[in-house]
């Protein structure tokens, strides 16, 4: 019983991290129709900057986080500027080129991380070290923080999208960017904000998970894959889709540690992918979306 609770909670908190990266995918995609593969790289850079500032330079954790998030946001805005460098209202974005550009950025970030931090795995400092005992289950304090951060950010974004002008502008861009610009929305600025915001959220995900999974220079690709999985599983709903997709993904990945004799490993890689294939075949719009939107 304790074991079950422990595994479920670990799954949810892990899944929260996937959800945060997935939300990044969905925010950028809804605002600009670009699949930004560099989404995981912000988690990589943000996480490394955080652990270096906090561990090696001894900065307080909150300050190190703030700097890492700010840097990632700048990196995100830069990504948008690069991708839309030659875009004009009459010369729309080339999606193939945009995807390839962001893929190139993944490689650049990976290479940079290797040059600066080498090939070792690094462990980030926990916000609150130690464990708590809940009904006999051992819960890492950090994973509570991960889950709390996921839920707070999701609720905040949902509020932003439905109750603020920036959110309305983002949803207008998602529906019809041309109409949005005829209503006075600066679509490029909205896109840049979406990139920046997504990068900041991704960086936060990287920092939160760094004490648990540790980071190495290749972790960006891992984050990207899990984020896309969360996004595709949940479906194209700005926040709820990747949130539910990520949590399910985390539960599934950890769920079969409950089966006797299994040790994760290879299955942990294979089962989520198999799940994705099943979803894409039977419910290509994602688990949450009821009908395909035109």
């Amino acid at each position: 019983m304790e074991h079950l609770f422990q595994v479920l909670f670990t799954g949810l908190s892990q899944g929260g991290i996937y959800a945060l990266v997935g939300i990044g995918f969905s925010l950028v995609n809804m605002s600009t129709r670009v699949l930004n593969l560099a989404q995981g790289s912000y988690a990589l850079i943000g996480g490394f900057v955080f652990l270096t500032l906090a561990s090696r330079f001894g900065l307080p954790a909150w300050l190190a986080m703030l700097i890492g998030v700010a840097l990632a946001a700048i990196l995100g805005v830069l990504t948008e500027r690069i991708v839309t460098l030659r875009v004009r209202p009459w010369r729309p974005i080339s999606h193939d080129m945009a995807i390839l550009t962001t893929l190139a950025l993944v490689v650049v970030c990976e290479g940079t991380a290797f040059l600066i931090w080498g090939s070792d795995t690094h462990r980030g400092p926990a916000l609150q070290p130690g464990v708590v005992n809940v009904f006999g289950a051992i819960i890492i304090r950090q994973s509570i923080w991960m889950l709390v951060a996921t839920l707070v950010i999701s609720l905040g974004l949902q509020f932003l999208l439905t109750h603020t002008w920036l959110g309305r502008a983002m949803r207008a861009c998602a529906q019809n960017p041309l109409t949005a610009s005829l209503l006075g929305v600066n679509t490029r600025r909205v896109g840049a904000i979406a990139f920046g915001l997504s990068a900041a959220i991704g960086a936060l995900a990287g920092m939160l998970v760094s004490p648990i999974t540790w980071l190495d220079y290749q972790i960006g690709g891992e984050f990207m894959l899990k984020g896309i999985l969360a996004y595709l599983l949940g479906g194209e709903m700005a926040v709820a889709g990747p949130l539910v997709g990520g949590l399910i993904l985390g539960l599934v990945e950890n769920g079969f540690l409950l089966l006797p004799g299994t040790v994760g490993g290879l299955l942990k890689q294979v089962v989520p992918m198999a799940l994705l294939i099943l979803v894409l075949v039977w419910r290509p719009q994602g688990l949450l979306v009821t009908r395909r939107q035109a």
């Binding site: 309305r168 949803r171 207008a172 998602a174 529906q175 019809n176 041309l178 109409t179 949005a180 005829l182 939107q293 035109a294």
Partner: peptide, 11 residues
């Protein structure tokens, strides 16, 4: 006012 009214259909 654009041709075809161009609703933001989901809003």
């Amino acid at each position: 006012v654009p041709e075809g009214r161009q609703m933001l259909a989901g809003l």
